[in-house]
Design a protein around this nucleic acid. Structure first.
Lengths: 136, 136
DNA sequence: CAGTATCCTAAGAGATACTG
DNA sequence: CAGTATCTCTTAGGATACTG
């Protein structure tokens, strides 16, 4: 376990494995990063930040159903991976603003596109489900 | 709980809620469909099917680290939502092929683009993490 | 080969209460 | 306001064994 990738024996990277070597490899770090980004709440938080920076409470209200714990956890993960910037204004009451980093600003539109795509295809999805369930 | 969305009291859908009514709404079915698609193993299975149809065992080997149970479960979900088609050739030994449906063929490239984007940004992600962890 | 069935552990996730 | 802490419950997920 914990092998990096490719053929460790030869020290060479088989060109044919170049594709498979990344996300498809269990040890690849990009798989973890991808999961952080595509996580249930992270994905919604990122798209929610697309139009403008938002405060914690705003995000909490906007991402309907998220608990404080999960939102906090997701935002911390996104901040750690460099997709979101957290800015604290020390004041009373405290004011914390979350905004997309340049990298996050590139990522979020892709996520939104994905969201939109799935939304647009929901009629098909529902038809497929009914069709599938009726056969079972 | 289980309220549909918008303002159930008036029976009208506030235009201002039109945006929030979708994925950001807890009850929206697109949120569930989105999660199915962006799930850890589902996402990898879909992109693995992008080049050509594959058999169960091929997918299992290709998506490194997935268990039979999880792959089976993910494929069933994708089939139910109409992204993947499952074709059984009754023979001995059995031969089952998974291929993208037309809808799946539209979806998968978007997922691949997301995967590629994250892969390409891994150096930035790693730098962000080190930077973040050193401050803590 | 292509799964299902079973068992078990770890992680996800909600609710509530509390703090700087 | 913006979280953290804690507790509990559910689901995800892995391992192994078995079947059409």
């Amino acid at each position: 376990m914990e092998r990096t990738q490719g053929s460790a024996e030869t020290g060479e990277v088989d060109p044919a494995e170049a594709f498979a070597a990344d996300v498809f490899s269990r040890a690849c770090t990009s798989r973890g990063a991808l999961e952080h980004v595509t996580g249930k709440w992270s994905l919604l938080a990122l798209t929610a930040l697309l139009d403008a920076p938002h405060r914690f409470g705003e995000l909490r209200r906007r991402v309907d159903g998220v608990s404080e714990k999960m939102l906090s956890q997701s935002l911390q993960g996104l901040e750690r991976d460099g997709w979101v910037h957290r800015e604290v204004r020390s004041s009373i009451p405290p004011h914390v603003e979350y905004r997309l980093t340049p990298a996050g600003a590139e990522l979020a539109p892709r996520l939104l596109a994905l969201v939109t795509f799935v939304e647009d295809h929901m009629p098909e999805v529902h038809r497929a489900r009914e069709d599938h369930d009726s056969r079972s």
